[in-house]
C-alpha cells in the first residue's frame, strides 16, 4: 500500500537548513498496523504529512497504491486524501463552529454526497465510536476523549483503507487514551491499514510492527511479538 524510497525532506528557513527526513525507506502492506516511534523533533509528523499527501518530499519517491504521488495535481491529491486516507491528529482538529455530526459529515461533503445519505452515514460512524448520543454537541462541549473519538469517526466515515494517526493519545488522559487505542485496534481487525505515530513505547507495543526514527533516519525496525 505504501512504499517510500529514499525520502528526504529539507526545510529552509531564513538560511537555516533543517534535514527533517534523510532517506526513509519503508513499506506498509495492506492490513498492516505500523507504529512510527521517535523523540520529539525526529521527523515523525513530517513523515506522516508526506504519507498523507499533505506535503511532498524534497527528494525520493513515494508510491501510494502504486501511484507516484509527487506527479499528481493538487486536485488529484485532494481526492486521494478524501478517498484513501483518514487523518487523526494529536490536537483533534475539529471545526469549533460545527456540531459533532457536521464535523463528521465534512469529508462526505467534499465527496459530493447528498444530504440525507450523508447524515445517515455520519450518524452511523458516530455510533461506531460510541457517540451516537452526542451528535448535536459542539467540540467545546465534549471531553478530550470524546473529541478524539469524533475525529476518529470523521477519519473513517468515508471508509478509507488507510488511517494515519499522529500521536492520537498525546493530549488525552490514560483512560481516554486506552479507549482510542481500543478503537484503532478494532479498525485494524476490520481490515484497515493503520500508521500510528507516537513517542510512547507502550503505545507502539500495541501495534503489529514499529519503526524507530531518530534525526530523520530509521534506526530500528521490529515486529512486536504477540
Amino acid at each position: 500500500m505504501i512504499l517510500t524510497e529514499n525520502i528526504s525532506k529539507l526545510y529552509k528557513l531564513e538560511g537555516v537548513e533543517v534535514h527533517a527526513l534523510r532517506g526513509i525507506n519503508m513499506t506498509v502492506a495492506k492490513g498492516d498496523f505500523l507504529s512510527v516511534i521517535g523523540p520529539s523533533g525526529s521527523g515523525k509528523s513530517t513523515l506522516m504529512n508526506i504519507i498523507g499527501c499533505l506535503d511532498t518530499p524534497t527528494a525520493g519517491c513515494y508510491l501510494l497504491n502504486g501511484h507516484e504521488v509527487s506527479s499528481l495535481s493538487d486536485n488529484r491529491l485532494a481526492e486521494i486524501r478524501n478517498q484513501l486516507i483518514g487523518f487523526v491528529f494529536q490536537s483533534f482538529n475539529l471545526l469549533p463552529r460545527l456540531s459533532a455530526l457536521e464535523n463528521v459529515e465534512l469529508p462526505l461533503i467534499y465527496r459530493g454526497m447528498g444530504g440525507r445519505e450523508r447524515q445517515e452515514t455520519a450518524l452511523s460512524a458516530l455510533e461506531n465510536v460510541g457517540l451516537g448520543d452526542r451528535i448535536g454537541h459542539r467540540p467545546t462541549q465534549l471531553s478530550g476523549g470524546q473529541q478524539q473519538r469524533v475525529a476518529i469517526a470523521r477519519a473513517l466515515v468515508g471508509n478509507p483503507p488507510l488511517i494515519l494517526a499522529d500521536e492520537p493519545t498525546g493530549n488525552l488522559d490514560s483512560t481516554s487514551g486506552k479507549e482510542v487505542m481500543t478503537l484503532l485496534q478494532k479498525l485494524h481487525s476490520e481490515g484497515k491499514t493503520i500508521v500510528l505515530i507516537t513517542h510512547d513505547m507502550d503505545i507502539a507495543m500495541q501495534s503489529q510492527r514499529y519503526v524507530r526514527i531518530h534525526d530523520g533516519e530509521i534506526v530500528e525496525e521490529k515486529v512486536v511479538p504477540s
Partner: peptide
C-alpha cells in the same frame, strides 16, 4: 487558517 488546513486535509479542493 487552521480551519482551511483541516478542510484541505479532509479532501477540500481549491475550488471548495
Amino acid at each position: 487558517t487552521r480551519e482551511i488546513g483541516i478542510c484541505k486535509a479532509l479532501g477540500a479542493k481549491r475550488r471548495d
